[in-house]
Amino acid sequence: MIHRLNHFLSTKRVLIGTSLMRFSLGTGILFYLLYHYQERHLLWGSEGLWPTEKFMESSGERGIITLFHLSDAPWFLDGIYHIGILAVVMFTIGFRTRLATIFTFLIFWSLYYRNPFITNGGDNIVRIQLFFLLFAQAGTHFSLDRMLSQRRTSSKSRLEPYSSILHNFAVLVMILQLVCLYTTSGIYKIMGSMWQGGTAVYYAMRVQDYVWPGVSEWIWQSEGLIVLLTYSSVLFQVSFPFLLLNRYTKYLALLGAFCFHTGVGLVMNLALFSWYMISFEWLLLTDSEYHRLIKRWKTLYSKGVSLVRRQNMEKESMREWVG
């Protein structure tokens, strides 16, 4: 029993999902940094939207320490920003992953608290998940670190079992964080009168920042579609943790999450938020489930290729017979 427990704890799990999360999350953060590159001094500079005096006062009250406490000079912001872009690129491609994750977390943490008025729920959960990702093995797959490690032989460290336990614990906490997010969001929706009445999506889509011209009007003019979207959103979020308890309904939870966030990203102009949330969904499948999906995909692909070839051969033989 003890041997089985030790084997269970000391075996790294969800390595593929963690690596996919790293790549997807890094892509989103890199887009965020490049998108705001020209306006970085306006958003985070000493004379920008949130001046240094107010930033220092607010962070002092909350007990927050960031890199911007070291200096408020424009050259320092430029240095932090460019180092951040480099760190996120390394993080995304998986080069020196552990070090790149540390720098990515520090940069994102500092930018998040330097101007908290331009953040959203997506930035908040990224900040939390990045912290736990510091303790996980995020560069095992789809990374330069893996390519480089295959070229050299390395002996296992004595600390390897402890590293595995730490990785598994970090992954578990990140999954629980995601589950808690969906559950609490669903519960708060249930308590809202607009969600109970089936009109919440209508009023949310009427906010000017969330309008998709030509599409939003078509959606909110359909009473049945509005009610369906409202109730299905609540049902998905409340049932999400229970769907994960079964190996088959888990795929339904993932499909629902992808559809839900894709719809939110497109219809409500929250593309980056949805990208962040979808990035975390990769954690919900085990390595064996990913291998099973890949195997099934290869089987379906080979059958499809064989079918196309057979049809082409039949057409060719028919042409020869007619000719």
Rank of each mutant, 00 (worst) to 15 (best):
L5Y: 03
L5E: 12
L5N: 04
N6S: 11
N6T: 15
H7I: 15
H7R: 13
H7P: 03
F8D: 12
L9A: 11
S10M: 11
T11W: 01
R13F: 07
R13M: 10
V14G: 01
L15Q: 08
L15V: 15
T18H: 01
L20A: 10
L20M: 12
M21T: 12
M21I: 11
M21C: 10
R22H: 08
S24L: 11
L25C: 03
L25V: 13
G28T: 12
G28M: 09
G28S: 11
I29V: 11
I29W: 02
I29P: 00
L30K: 00
F31A: 11
F31V: 13
Y32R: 03
Y35A: 08
Y35T: 11
H36P: 01
H36R: 09
Q38Y: 02
Q38L: 10
R40P: 01
R40S: 02
R40G: 04
H41M: 09
H41W: 03
L43M: 12
L43S: 06
E47K: 05
E47V: 15
E47C: 03
G48H: 07
L49W: 09
W50P: 00
P51M: 12
T52C: 02
E53M: 07
K54M: 14
K54Y: 05
F55E: 11
M56W: 05
E57K: 05
S58L: 14
E61W: 08
E61R: 09
R62N: 10
R62K: 13
R62C: 02
G63C: 12
G63D: 14
I64L: 06
I64W: 02
I65S: 04
T66P: 00
L67Q: 09
F68H: 05
F68K: 05
F68Y: 05
F68R: 02
H69A: 06
H69Y: 07
H69T: 13
L70K: 04
S71A: 09
S71W: 02
D72G: 10
D72A: 11
D72F: 09
D72S: 12
D72E: 14
D72I: 14
A73K: 08
A73E: 13
P74K: 10
P74Y: 06
W75D: 10
W75R: 07
L77M: 12
L77S: 06
L77F: 06
L77A: 08
D78E: 14
D78I: 15
I80W: 01
I80P: 03
I80T: 11
I80F: 01
H82L: 14
H82Q: 10
I83S: 00
I83W: 00
I83E: 00
G84P: 02
I85R: 01
L86P: 04
L86Q: 05
L86H: 02
A87R: 02
V88M: 05
V89D: 07
